[in-house]
Design a protein around this nucleic acid. Structure first.
Lengths: 223, 223
DNA sequence: CCCACATCTCAACCGCTTCTGAGCCGATCA
DNA sequence: TGATCGGCTCAGAAGCGGTTGAGATGTGGG
């Protein structure tokens, strides 16, 4: 979860840095193109967030040089110019995605994480190591799950599913989201595995199915 | 919240349709380019989700023709080809954003909503996540509704309807407007579903029907 | 090679949601 | 006062969506 932020305007940089670090990212900050290239050379980042308008070396050049060095780190471009030509140029230089200023912070986070996910293919969250919901506990490091104090056995998929719910308690999750998160991006969209596994999980965690509620035509929610 | 989905593969289309509708979108589906152009000509959508690989007219052409007609509807391209050239072409043709298949469903939703927000210029999600009106509360993330502190059960349509009223409190909503927003653009205009569902909703949220007032020959209003 | 377990598909079942159509009631107006 | 129009409600039909069990397939250990 390391990110390199390349941005010359101090205020903007600080704003982004705070937001990212609140989301659990370790942020390195580079003020200009040269600085950025040095950082990138000596460290390994998960994502690079690159402003196009920079003093000295231009953002596009940074991008091209990184790619010339065979760096595969995903690059998200920040640009103030909302013309198709700018976007097109950036993508040609090897950026993976772009976002225009002024941007919605949620969107920025979403794109950063999407890039990271796409690159690593797996979503690791830095946070609490023991999740609970009512009388249910889930230890992320040992992967042990207990209900009312007694341990229960779950298969991998069942665990993944439970984990997804526990990190989204109170929120409604559509089947599509669940399928994407647990079974991956190219799962057969017509399958009903989700339903089947919800059933199995409910049986194992008890609570007469009240722990995970069905919202007809929408999805499921854990309380 | 109307969206036009242009996708030839039935399975994929169905998958996306379900997911979007779980998020509260009314989805119209077009199977090919011509179909898409017809739909777009006769209806007004908030967003168009356009697959590039289509039988007959190519996705890029659909895009270009829409723009030639001065349509300003935001277009999100769906492409299976992850090459920069493809993306670049799409953007040149006037698309506003792209996403590559296979895609992460969360990301799709995030982009659709980002486009919608950018186009309407108003932050639907950025603000409060809990809507209230008198002693009634509606939690947008858990979809729980309470009246005087006690939770009530609503079906999906009832919820969609309530949400529409809550985001338009004090404003008069015509039957046509309601039908379009909740039941989608090609709902039978002669139906009386709206009346029926207003009735059901009134019964469930209590208040002797004073919460939603009828304006004869005009429509309804929530206070 | 065999067995146990995990995963996934399929089909049957059940109930709820949704929608229709008809009849009712109250407003409005002649 | 009676006719008409708009809105409301009820009951019922249709079918979709969710659940479940049985079985096929895959996988890893002994």
């Amino acid at each position: 979860m390391n990110i390199l932020l390349v941005e010359d305007e101090f205020r903007v940089a600080d704003f982004i840095r705070r937001g990212l670090s609140a989301e659990g990212w370790a942020v390195d900050h580079a003020r200009d193109g040269e600085d950025a290239l040095e950082h990138a050379a000596s460290n390994s980042y998960d994502v690079i967030l690159l402003d196009l308008m920079l003093p000295g070396i231009q953002g596009q050049d940074v991008c091209r040089k990184l790619r010339a060095r065979k760096s595969k780190t995903p690059i998200l471009m920040l640009t103030a110019l909302d013309s198709p030509e700018e976007r097109v140029d950036g993508l040609k230089m090897g950026a993976d995605d772009y976002i225009t200023k002024p941007f919605d912070f949620d969107e920025l986070i979403a794109r950063v994480e999407a890039l990271h996910r796409r690159a690593t293919g797996y979503a690791a969250d830095a946070g609490e190591n023991i999740l609970t919901s009512g009388s249910l506990t889930f230890d992320r490091s040992s992967l042990q799950v207990t209900v009312d104090g007694t341990e229960i056995e779950l298969s991998k998929k069942e665990r993944d599913l439970l984990l997804l719910f526990l990190t989204n308690t109170g929120r409604v999750l559509s089947r599509e989201r669940i399928l994407n998160s647990v079974w991956g991006l190219n799962a057969d969209p017509l399958t009903n595995v989700v339903d089947v596994y919800i059933g199995r999980l409910r049986r194992k965690i008890g609570g007469e199915g009240k722990r995970i509620v069905t919202l007809r035509n929408v999805g499921y929610r854990m309380n």
